[in-house]
Design a protein around this nucleic acid. Structure first.
Lengths: 108, 108
DNA sequence: TAAATGTATGAACAACTGCTCATATATGCA
DNA sequence: TGCATATATGAGCAGTTGTTCATACATTTA
C-alpha cells in the first residue's frame, strides 16, 4: 500500500523514538494491575507501611511486598525505616497526575 | 498493627471504590504494551488503515488486527470503511491526554 | 539473648498475553 | 465471475505476570 507523505513522517517519528514508547508502555504497565493501582492511590493520600497496605487489599503481606518491590525498582515509590516498619511513599507527584488523568477518562 | 484514623479512612475509600480502580487498571493495561502504545501514538497524529500501521511496527498484519480489536472493544479507537480499507482513528482526546501525561514522567 | 513483630525473597504454579500461522470474510477490479 | 487486495479471526504456543507458601532477615522488647 502506498503511503501518503504525512503518514510516512509519523511512521518515521515512531520508529526513531521506538525506545521512548517502550519506556512509556513499561510505565503504564505499572498502573495496569488493580493491586498496584490501589497501592499507588493509597499512597497519594498518605505514606504507609507494608502491613497497613496489606490490610485493605485482600492479598497477603508477601504479595504486597512483591508489588512494592516492583514499584520501588521503577522509582515510583521510596522507603524509609521507622523501627520495625518500612514506610512507603510516592517518589514524586507524577503518580498523582497520571492517576488523575486516567480517572478523568473513566468517570467522564 | 493499629491503624491511625486517617489511614483507616483511606482504606475505606479504596475498598468502597474497588471496582473503579479495577477499571482504572484495565484502562492502563491497554497502554502497557509497546505495540499498542505505538499504534495509539500514531493515531494521535492521523487516522490510519491497518496496513499502514502494520508497516512501521515490526509485527504482522494479523498482530496489528488483533491489537486494534482490543483497542476498539475498549472504545479507544473507532473505525470507518473506505473501499477495501478500514480506517482507524481515536474515539476521543483522552488517549492523547493520557499519553502526554505519561510522556511527561518519562522525559522529565 | 530469646521471642515477637514486620518485611523481603525465592520457588512454584496457574492464569493471562501477544504473537504467528492458517484461513475466512469482504471489497474492488479485470 | 474470478482474482487480487485488505482485514478479521480462531487455534496454538511461548513468555510473562501475580499470587501463595515457606522461609530468611531485621528490629524491638522482655
Amino acid at each position: 500500500m502506498e503511503n501518503s507523505n504525512a503518514i510516512s513522517k509519523i511512521q518515521d517519528a515512531i520508529t526513531r523514538n521506538s525506545e521512548l514508547f517502550e519506556s512509556l508502555a513499561q510505565l503504564y504497565k505499572l498502573f495496569g494491575d488493580a493491586s498496584r493501582v490501589k497501592i499507588l492511590v493509597a499512597l497519594t493520600q498518605s505514606e504507609m507501611c507494608v502491613s497497613e497496605i496489606s490490610e485493605f487489599l485482600s492479598i497477603t503481606q508477601s504479595a504486597v511486598s512483591h508489588q512494592l518491590r516492583i514499584l520501588k525498582s521503577s522509582n515510583l515509590v521510596k522507603t524509609r525505616r521507622d523501627g520495625k516498619n518500612i514506610i512507603y511513599s510516592l517518589t514524586d507527584n507524577h503518580v498523582r497526575t497520571i492517576i488523575d488523568c486516567g480517572m478523568e477518562h473513566i468517570t467522564e
